[in-house]
Design a binder for these strands. Structure first.
Lengths: 164, 164
DNA sequence: TAGACGTAGA
DNA sequence: TCTACGTCTA
């Protein structure tokens, strides 16, 4: 029935290294990096609560990246550019709630970034990040959006352009 | 660059028989039956004009099927259930224009139908149809929509449920 | 059933 | 840049 038989998990995926590249979101799901086809935040249940497992940063939102190891990730919901309908305040549910729980539980979150270089585009596994903080802001549509401060865990290879 | 290297064409696709089944829209594109991922009407340029090559009937619109060999296909555009935005009148452009040209030129159009049987679902190649007529109606949103009358060409195998 | 940072072609 | 009868998970 379900074509993805990988169990969700926190942390690295066995066999997937930082810097591994993928062409399609579907491939991320197949290898178990991120099992949501469109949603940017994936999560799992753990002792009744949810915990975020991974986020995809595709550049469609204004996720500031102050330094290479810190990024501000925008929560989900209420954006009429993504879902049909009117702008709404984001709520502490689904992916947003899961990221909050990940901060509380101090569990790492996989970050996958979309990339584009010349005519090649796809997604790169950027490694594990911790949720250090979150807050609410007024977004482009004057509605409340969540912002999550993610910091890259140390001891991980840096991602840079290099010759294949 | 383009991952589909099949050239568009009018009529049957070599190697694809009436009744052949496919799971995903992407597969229709790969074999050359219908190279649009989401759009229901595919077309090609021919001597400056466009001609429809194929349509997909997925049941999301109210395409009446009076008899097994006749169907009324709804044009594209202006439907807020499909595209974000407000309801609009459909215009004689893109797929709609191509179907009009196909009537004028008397060229056949491939019809692919979505099907669902028990837990199995996908798309079936239903064969070639001619565009016999078209007109405008007021649709669900009180906007003008095009309707195309398609009739199945004779000498094609009937599609019925059977044991595999 | 609704929500979601998709994709490719015009 | 925009449209489009997708497709998945919750």
């Amino acid at each position: 029935d379900k074509w993805i038989n990988t169990r969700k998990r926190i942390g690295h995926i066995p066999g997937v290294k930082v810097g591994d590249k993928f062409r399609y979101r579907a491939e991320l799901a197949i290898v178990g990096l991120h099992s949501q086809f469109q949603s940017g935040i994936d999560y799992m249940k753990n002792d009744g609560k949810t915990l975020a497992t991974s986020v995809v940063e595709s550049g469609r939102y204004d996720n500031a990246t102050e330094s290479p190891d810190v990024m501000t990730y925008t929560g989900q919901g209420g954006n009429p550019m993504v879902t049909k309908g009117k702008p709404k305040d984001q709520k502490p549910e689904r992916g947003n709630l899961a990221l909050m729980n990940s901060k509380e539980a101090r569990t790492p979150v996989r970050v996958i970034r979309s990339y584009k270089f010349s005519k090649e585009s796809g997604y790169v596994y950027d490694g594990l990040y911790m949720v250090d903080d979150f807050w609410q802001e007024r977004g482009d549509f004057h509605k409340l959006v969540y912002k999550f401060l993610l910091s890259r865990m140390s001891e991980q290879p840096k991602l840079t352009l290099c010759n294949s």
